[in-house]
């Protein structure tokens, strides 16, 4: 496994002349694995939260494949997804819906994992396009992943190559019913099967140079 030099354990000289040891992965990141987060105690409160979560989907603006081009029209007057409580956030911390828009090269997968792990529980993943389902037309590529579900817990697939913006809108409505029914527990699934997901991820990412979980 090749590590970037700035991530290696090394000695650093501070501005005051004192030398000390730095181990970036240990010192700069928190490596605690994710835990399963229970729902609210009472059914009514959880239902209220689920309703609010369904009606306020904040998408992480991260386009991976060609499908990303189909998300932009949703902001325009013709489709106007804002009507349905769908908004775009520029930072993973504030988003709760991650759309993997098409093929995912192993290089991008690394970034996608980091972004996904920085989102807050509960979080949802939509796989957009055939590439996320079975590899699509990149099924024999040496460089892309074939089944997104092996690497991140997917709540919903939108099939097509590429799906029209209308299909995305329909997908949002479908996701809303899943969330309202309390079945969209991807973040907890990820925490429960953490080892399995990590093993799959590490099998394709050969230059793994980040902590196992990115808070």
């Amino acid at each position: 496994m090749s590590m970037k030099p700035e991530l290696m354990k090394r000695m650093v000289k501070g501005p005051d002349g004192v030398e000390f040891e730095v181990e970036p992965l240990r010192d700069y990141f928190c490596e605690a694995p994710p835990t399963v987060m229970p729902a609210a105690y009472s059914r009514i409160v959880e239902d209220l939260f689920n309703w609010a979560r369904a009606e306020s989907l904040w998408i992480l603006g991260f386009g991976t494949g060609c499908g990303a081009i189909e998300m932009r029209p949703l902001m325009t007057p013709r489709f106007d997804a804002y009507r349905f409580g769908v908004q775009w956030r520029p930072t993973p911390r504030q988003a709760n819906l991650f759309i993997i828009s098409g093929y995912l090269s192993t290089k991008t997968l690394k970034r996608a994992i980091r972004s996904y792990e920085q989102m807050q529980n509960p979080k949802y993943v939509i796989g957009l396009g055939s590439c996320t389902i079975n590899g699509g037309m990149y099924w024999d590529s040496y460089n892309t992943i074939k089944r997104l579900d092996d690497y991140l817990p997917v709540d919903l697939y939108i099939a097509g190559c590429m799906p029209r913006p209308e299909a995305l809108l329909a997908g949002f409505q479908e996701l809303k019913t899943i969330i309202r029914a309390g079945k969209a527990e991807g973040a907890n699934k990820y925490a429960e099967n953490f080892e399995w997901y990590k093993a799959n991820q590490k099998r394709v990412i050969h230059d793994w140079d980040m902590p196992d979980y990115n808070w």
């Binding site: 609010a52 009606e55 007057p77």
Partner: peptide, 28 residues
């Protein structure tokens, strides 16, 4: 949004967003 010929967010959207953000389970 109307100026941009869109419908824009519903007027109660801010309330929903607020409930959702209080309802998120984890925070660091």
């Amino acid at each position: 949004a109307r100026v941009g010929r869109r419908h824009g967010i519903p007027v109660w959207q801010n309330h929903i967003d607020l409930i959702k953000n209080y309802g998120l389970r984890s925070s660091i």
